[in-house]
């Protein structure tokens, strides 16, 4: 991914991501989030991770965000007119943000010195490569994620039955 492509995507992406929290209307916020996720999928496409891009759109943009919109419409949420009450959240957010940026900087420093120019393996990002990684190297985290999701589903069913 070259310099121009990166910034042509990155600048709108950041602006749209800020709009998610800045826009007063909940429906527009959700739509900006959809757009953010869509642009992220485009990023994955440019990074040759086609499978991840497809999953990003199917799962996040196509399913989860539709449910968000569904709930917003069902509750008929209006635009946010009152100022948000502050509980020292601003300060916590600033501290969290600084820590995140520091971590990212550290990671960037470490990765750029080691594997900056290494070529991608032959079938990088294909369904086969991702699948075999998931079911061999990352089998345990994969199964644990599955169990977590199952717990969430069972919890939702129990709550709905009350």
């Amino acid at each position: 991914m070259d310099f121009v492509t990166f910034f042509a995507l990155a600048i709108p992406l950041v602006v749209i991501a800020i709009m998610v929290i800045a826009h007063p209307s909940p429906v527009y916020s959700a739509l900006f989030l959809v757009l953010t996720l869509f642009l992220l999928a485009v990023y994955f496409l440019f990074l040759d991770a086609h499978m991840v891009a497809a999953l990003q759109i199917i799962v996040y943009a196509g399913a989860i965000m539709v449910l968000f919109l569904f709930v917003i419409m069902l509750l008929n949420l209006q635009s946010d007119t009152q100022p948000t009450p502050r509980h020292g959240l601003g300060r916590a957010a600033i501290i969290g943000g600084v820590i995140l940026v520091a971590e990212l900087g550290l990671l960037l420093q470490r990765s750029s010195s080691e594997q900056a120019e290494s070529a991608l393996p032959e079938n990088f990002g294909t369904v086969e490569a991702l699948g075999s990684q998931l079911f061999t190297t990352y089998l345990l985290p994969f199964e644990i994620t599955g169990i977590l999701l199952l717990v969430a589903v069972v919890g939702a069913v129990v709550l709905a039955k009350r």
Partner: peptide, 9 residues
């Protein structure tokens, strides 16, 4: 490569 997944997306 993703074929059908593209349709679903």
């Amino acid at each position: 490569n993703i074929g059908i997944l593209y349709v679903l997306a």
